[in-house]
Design a protein around this nucleic acid. Structure first.
Length: 588
RNA sequence: GGCUGCGUAGCUCAACUGGAUAGAGUACCUGACUACGAAUCAGGCGGUUACAGGUUCGACUCCUGUCGCGGUCACCA
């Protein structure tokens, strides 16, 4: 049992013994004591004033005394304005740190036997990935890592949007202007090559629309757009020529995506392709009709009435029997359940689709699907640039591959200026630059609460100082360096260390919080909680490092204790950053 | 317009889900390397938490209203 629950139970017991009042120990408020006060944990006593019929100050004193006398871990207390600050015994912290030395997977929750699928990225196969995808991908990956650490069995997936009019657009342009160009012949990465023709399509369409407007005609009349529409019809009719071109170009794009995913260090356990799943879900419509959950309109289309939950009416099947976005999502959700038997699904999708997912989840609930009560839409805010909103049509998108190359290059520039890696060969150096650059980028994005819209300043994203990924890496590297230099030492003498410095106790306290951080991050699907924790731990370590001597400590006991403590900090930093998909270098 | 989300230091973000004097980073100013890594540390400057009410021992957090900025309201995905 952790200390916090011990304290809560202690308080409940004290209330019973001293005031004859029954309270649920879960309702007791226990916070971390603020820095400016003495103590480790703080019990808020205001809520007890009514039951105890005494003032907060007096209750605090009486509760504190009881806890001090009856709870072994509590060594002292003080009461300030109705806040009972508890100090834990030195021996408690020393013991905690000692058992930490042998724990390998510290922080990981025990398996809860539940299987969850996390969907993220889910790109269109007509253009390369951009900054928006990067936020999505990093969030999805980190969520997977966090849920995994919290005790779930996790599967990652993406649904590749590889069919539809927008896909035909780049195909049409390529057919007319491609001249047989391939990624190999042009040296252009597959997704970028296809993207090039998507842009080509847009510019031609624009010209044609301008011409049509001059003649006073509708923009839907643009010849190239008509071509794309025809191609879509052929695609759906399984025209062999169109299918072959589609296969070829899709292959290029997917190959390009794979390269980018690899650079980011993410992978998927399962890919779903919309070209294969877009017909799924129709059976659901029949099921819903049978159950009376859906209704049929006069024109033969099928809809659902969600007005009672303020979601309006939603059409699920067109009059001609073809399906829609929601219908497809119903089908794929069920497919996942049939493929893997998942208990829970998380969708990492932008917040502009909040309404869509509310509708989807509501429908699945009404159809009484077994997984329907454990669906979560991790809605994240858009990424803004200092210049404003990203718009692919206006060419203000930040390309994923370019961005990755840029952050790594920036890390390289800084590292070369700083020096210190002269004994590394070029490959080793590049590996370090890669880790630093990616840490800067990933941390910059993940430290922001997902729900919030965020501003991406390219300049700040490559910063290496302050609240950044490299700052945390630096703490880790410092520890590696010290531990290495320390060589062999008598680890068992650490047990003789009795009086901790304030910064040592702070570190112990932070380390003890790690398992709880993982659990709340998992509950809230919030990597930023892990990010700020890592920063706090790194910062406290840097201060500790500055304040106390490790290798030249006063005693052998102090030296051993500090080396072990530093090692545990490194262990947790490495583990925490791994939850963000960030790797630690040994040197930097 | 209906529904919905957001508004915290010059800038980028926190605040343990209602708890103490609202904290970090950055920018700007100052100090600390011939001893374990200065990508570091210490100090200073910076706030009527958009505004106005309300709920209570206590509100950035909950309720009401106002202003400002997004998103969304398809038989598109």
């Amino acid at each position: 049992m952790d200390v916090i629950s011990t304290i809560k139970k202690g308080v409940a017991k004290a209330m019973e013994m001293q005031y004859q009042t029954q309270i649920d120990s879960d309702t007791v408020m226990v916070n971390n004591t603020k820095k400016e006060f003495d103590g480790d944990y703080t019990v808020v006593v205001f809520p007890f004033t009514k039951a105890a019929k005494k003032g907060p100050e007096q209750i605090g004193q009486e509760l504190g005394q009881f806890l001090k006398d009856n709870v072994a871990e509590v060594s002292d207390f003080n009461v300030i304005k109705g806040f009972l600050n508890l100090e834990l015994a030195e021996s408690y912290w020393l013991q905690f740190l000692e058992q930490l030395n042998d724990l390998k997977d510290y922080g990981r929750g025990t398996s809860n036997g539940k299987k969850v699928m996390v969907e993220f990225s889910s790109p269109n196969t007509n253009k390369p990935l951009h900054l928006g995808h990067i936020r999505n991908i990093l969030l999805g990956w980190s969520c997977y890592k966090i849920l995994d650490a919290a005790g779930y069995e996790v599967l990652t997936t993406q649904i590749v949007n590889d069919r539809g009019l927008h896909i035909c657009k780049s195909m049409v342009a390529y057919q007319s202007y491609g001249e047989g160009e391939t990624p190999e012949s042009s040296g252009i990465k597959g997704d970028h090559l296809v993207g090039k023709y998507y842009i080509k399509f847009s510019s031609i369409e624009k010209e044609q629309i301008a011409a049509l407007k001059a003649e006073g005609k509708d923009k839907e009349e643009a010849a190239i757009l008509k071509e794309a529409r025809e191609m879509l019809l052929k695609w759906e009719a399984n025209d062999p020529e169109v299918k072959a071109l589609w296969k070829l170009m899709n292959g290029w794009v997917l190959g390009g995506f794979e390269t980018t995913y690899k650079k980011l260090g993410v992978s998927f356990d399962k890919n779903y392709f919309e070209s294969e799943t877009y017909l799924l879900g129709k059976e659901f419509v029949m099921k819903g009709l049978d159950k009376g959950v859906f209704y049929k309109k006069e024109d033969n289309s099928v809809a659902v009435d969600l007005e009672d939950v303020k979601l309006d009416h939603k059409t699920l099947l067109r009059g001609d029997g073809t399906s829609l976005y929601v219908t497809q999502d119903m089908g794929t959700a069920n497919q996942r359940f049939e493929d893997y038997g998942v208990d829970k699904m998380v969708y990492v999708v932008g917040d502009e689709q909040i309404y869509h997912f509310k509708v989807l989840f509501e429908i699945l609930k009404r159809l009484e699907q077994p997984y329907a009560n454990d669906l979560y839409h991790l809605a994240y805010g858009m990424v803004d640039l200092p210049s404003g909103k990203m718009k692919s049509r206006e060419g203000t998108v930040v390309d994923a591959d370019e961005l990755i190359a840029e952050v790594i290059n920036e890390a390289k520039k800084n590292a070369e200026e700083k020096g210190g890696l002269e004994d590394f060969d070029q490959d080793q150096k590049n590996e370090v630059y890669r880790k630093i650059g990616l840490a800067a980028l990933k941390y910059f994005i993940l430290k922001v609460n997902p729900q919030k819209r965020m501003l991406f300043d390219p300049k700040e994203s490559v910063d290496l100082q302050g609240d950044t990924g490299p700052y945390i890496q630096n703490a880790f590297v410092r520890i590696s360096s010290v531990v290495k230099k320390a060589g062999t030492f008598n680890a068992s003498s650490a047990k003789e260390y009795k009086t901790m410095e304030p910064s040592e106790k702070e570190l112990a306290f932070l380390l003890s919080e790690y398992p709880g951080i993982i659990q709340t991050a998992a509950q809230n699907y919030d990597p930023s909680a892990v990010a700020s924790y890592c920063f706090e731990l790194a910062k406290t370590f840097h201060r500790f490092y500055h304040d106390v001597q490790i290798m030249r400590a006063d005693s052998e006991a102090a030296k051993a204790f500090r080396i072990l403590l530093a090692g545990n900090v490194a262990k947790v930093l490495g583990s925490g950053m791994d939850l963000l998909g960030i790797q630690m270098p040994e040197r930097m």
